[in-house]
Write a protein that binds this DNA or RNA. Structure first.
Lengths: 159, 159
DNA sequence: TTAAAATTTAGAATTTTATTCGATATGAAT
DNA sequence: ATTCATATCGAATAAAATTCTAAATTTTAA
């Protein structure tokens, strides 16, 4: 698994470029833009899904609309065996935790967390992180303002 | 701006919950699940878009499929005037930069960057970051492995 | 509490899009 | 050249989105 040829061509890239910007673009529009038939686009998209090039479609929701105004990054030092992310998996189970990265250096994790407010963060750290075995220490960085937050990848241009 | 009442009810939350998981779920399916008419769902979704509760729909693309195997976080100390993120905006313009956060503490930014490999990172730092005026210093954290990476928000449950 | 106004919903009609499928083309391997 | 696999097109069909109006519900104000 993971060992696979994706073999994407320029048409795939163009489709990905469009879908990355608006996942609800319909086949007819994509077809028009690429000068192809809608059915051909459909085939391509299905194949991209099947090959797990497109992993999922999601709606980006405004955190403010759900009153989630606080964003933090927490460095977590753990006593995990290298390569076995026991603590990592436990962290990943927490709904407020959006990202968990195993990072080089201080043998630990970098975790991205979204909460309503500072109280929510404190609560999470005390009641949820606090109960995870194997956490040695944490260091929290608070986000004052987010300038950019996207997950768009740079898609190779025509050669 | 930003001062607005979202006034979301349980039905909206349910719709958001569904759309957050799969932005291509059709109205008929949502309607069935919520016991409503498709046209009512359509109205709701349109309103959610209009109120900017739903910000956009995007396809999550597998970074490996585009050979982007390297993920890094860079702390950037800048000489920006507080509240005026000149450097922040310049960083946000870089395609490989997915996130730019103004963080508390060392008056700087936390930046999330995706490149093909280590060489790509070095190249970016030298040729792109290196040309931005006002950057005092950088500290880079390299991600060895990502355990979780989502942007899903915790949606309030029924009261 | 009641009445008017505004909003939301259902359901049918219509338009648009997705999907299927056979025919044709393209390309690589034999 | 022949076979096999893959892609595309284009028409036909199925499904979904969208529009619209009347009825129902909720909100507001009297």
């Amino acid at each position: 698994m993971g060992k696979m040829e994706y073999n994407l061509d320029q048409i795939d890239y163009q489709i990905l470029r469009i879908m990355q910007d608006n996942a609800r673009t319909n086949n007819a529009d994509i077809a028009r833009e690429l000068g192809m038939a809608p059915s051909a686009i459909l085939e391509r998209v299905k194949k991209l899904e099947q090959k797990e090039v497109i992993l999922q479609y999601n709606a980006k929701i405004n955190p403010n609309a759900l009153d989630q105004k606080m964003l933090s990054f927490i460095f977590i030092k753990a006593q995990d065996i290298i390569g076995v992310q026991k603590v990592g998996f436990l962290l990943a189970e927490i709904p407020e935790v959006q990202e968990v990265h195993d990072i080089a250096g201080d043998d630990g994790y970098l975790v991205k967390v979204r909460t309503n407010d500072a109280a929510g963060l404190v609560d999470l750290m005390r009641n949820t992180l606090g109960k995870i075995e194997g956490i040695i220490s944490t260091r929290t960085t608070i986000v004052l303002e987010t300038v950019k937050e996207e997950q768009k990848l740079v898609i190779p241009a025509k050669k």
